[in-house]
Design a protein around this nucleic acid. Sequence first.
DNA 1: CTTCAGGTACGATGCAAGTCATACCTGAAG
DNA 2: CTTCAGGTATGACTTGCATCGTACCTGAAG
Lengths: 111, 111
Amino acid sequence: MAGRNLVGLEVDALDLGAVFRALADEHRRSVMTELAADRSDSERGCNSFDLPISKQTQTHHFRVLREAGLIDEIDYGNRKGIRLRRADIEKRFPGLLTLLGSESPGGTAPR
Amino acid sequence: MAGRNLVGLEVDALDLGAVFRALADEHRRSVMTELAADRSDSERGCNSFDLPISKQTQTHHFRVLREAGLIDEIDYGNRKGIRLRRADIEKRFPGLLTLLGSESPGGTAPR
DNA sequence: CTTCAGGTACGATGCAAGTCATACCTGAAG
DNA sequence: CTTCAGGTATGACTTGCATCGTACCTGAAG
């Protein structure tokens, strides 16, 4: 079984500074906005976000998001899954995910 | 004629990225946390925050907060006043100020 | 006038962070 | 086996940013 061996921090250990630093980047914020917009919280692939950056940089960004406690990365060996930690985020920082939607009035519309 | 000639942007022009970048810094976040904790929204002096940095750096930080649309700076010539734009922030980014209290000492005390 | 405190402008510096090139690893499909 | 796509590790580069030193401005008090 491919367990979530790449999980982030504990819920209580989530740092607001790290969260703001993670969301300060445009690409990471677009990823989080997309994830927050999908209420089904389905697991997504890394390349399903269509980021205009190299794959090494994508690896870097996903790691930052994971270390900030915002997502979980599920390692399948030659593939990777991304899942939003919606429950943990809402528990620790209620309203944060709603805040991300403020930038895309109308839905998922990255400029 | 102590007008607020150093006001920030319009409410609709507030950018979420600029806000997150502004709140990513520890010193700026502490200022915002203090301002958000004071429900009277009274005008405060720049040196009332007791920041462990030089005054030039303080000028820089307050400017970033103003350009992000989070505060207004009232210029008195040889003095300066700081005021939180609570109404505008709550209108554009509801829940953001509450979020800042998540790490405030005395507000939402963890454990 | 001079002095002084609060604040700003400009420049320089040091460090963190975003980005990519190269090389390597992993698992699936021929 | 080989090939290939997805992902990572390492290193280097470059930009952004927080910080401070020096100099200057502003208004109030001697």
